[in-house]
């Protein structure tokens, strides 16, 4: 089941002096079972784009196809709840959505809304909390007493507990510490590879795109400026630079080394591989 945008535009506050076209004729198809990064400058329409995936925003024109649903501009879609259970969307700074008395109750709120029994919901909630790195001692705490990073984890667990087939994440690691960031990114990657979930992630961090993602969608001024595999995207740093994006550190290092006369093959993509490669060449030259 494809996830596709067909000539989709979205206009905020249409018909007022504050009218703003945030999506402009977007044609796009996300690959199933892949982990796709959506990148682009601030205000380029990334959040607007991903909110169409579970019909929180409806297109002003065009058609969005998600799972077996077709959402066309001008029609009032019914029964969106099922879709929202299948496409789990985690917002930018999701911690404000916590409201229950205990973390466990809050995380089981989602599954219960989709008709899962109380026990099953608790079971799933516990599993999701452990996955997100919050152990038993947090289950009965009030979400308001958690630290910022812990709140974030609880909020993400709240969506994971719904066990959606498609996971959409809007800058899930913004403001997390480096270790937390790595843990969460690894978790998303595992959900993608081990459980076959389609993951769509909005991020500003090129290192994350480089290390974890299969494909890249570049948004610019409300348009989908590019959609290609991450490998192709980073193979040539001129693509990044032409779009005003700073390539990951390893790519920049390779570029600099090539300029200094080293012979660095294209497929090098980890620091250790690069180190070995340089060591070999340095030895050879004495």
């Amino acid at each position: 089941m494809p996830i596709a945008f067909d000539k989709v535009s979205h206009i905020y506050s249409a018909g007022t002096p504050y009218e703003f076209k945030a999506l402009d004729d977007v044609d796009l198809e996300f690959s199933e079972g892949k982990m796709t990064a959506v990148i682009g400058q601030t205000g380029s329409g990334k959040s607007t784009l991903v909110q169409h995936l579970n019909a929180l925003l409806l297109p002003s024109s065009g058609t969005v196809r998600v799972m077996d649903r077709e959402i066309t501009a001008g029609t009032a879609p019914k029964g969106l709840k099922k879709l929202r259970g299948e496409v789990g969307l985690i917002f930018q700074f999701p911690e404000y959505q916590l409201f229950e008395e205990t973390v466990l109750k809050d995380v089981s709120f989602g599954p219960k809304n989709f008709g899962v029994s109380e026990e099953e919901a608790q079971k799933r909630a516990k599993e999701a909390l452990r996955l997100c790195g919050l152990d038993e001692q947090y289950d009965e705490r009030s979400p308001l007493e958690l630290s910022g990073g812990q709140k974030r984890r609880a909020a993400i667990a709240g969506i994971l507990a719904m066990d959606p087939q498609v996971l959409v994440l809007d800058e899930p690691t913004a403001g997390l510490d480096p270790r937390g960031t790595e843990e969460m990114m690894k978790l998303f990657r595992t959900l993608n590879t081990k459980r076959g979930k389609t993951v769509i992630i909005v991020t500003h961090d090129m290192e994350q795109v480089f290390v974890y993602c299969d494909e890249v969608v570049v948004m610019a001024d409300g348009k989908a400026a590019a959609h290609m595999s991450a490998r192709d995207f980073f193979a040539d740093s001129s693509i990044c630079r032409s779009m005003n994006i700073l390539p990951p550190a390893i790519i920049r290092t390779c570029d600099a080394l090539r300029e200094a006369g080293f012979d660095i093959p294209k497929e090098i993509n980890t620091t250790s591989a690069l180190a070995k490669c340089i060591a070999r060449q340095v030895k050879r030259h004495g």
């Binding site: 789990g88 969307l89 985690i90 917002f91 999701p94 959505q97 709120f109 809304n113």
Partner: peptide
């Protein structure tokens, strides 16, 4: 914003 976030969690 909160309304959207809760709607994503199945609130109707």
């Amino acid at each position: 914003r909160i309304m959207k976030a809760q709607e994503s969690r199945g609130v109707d």
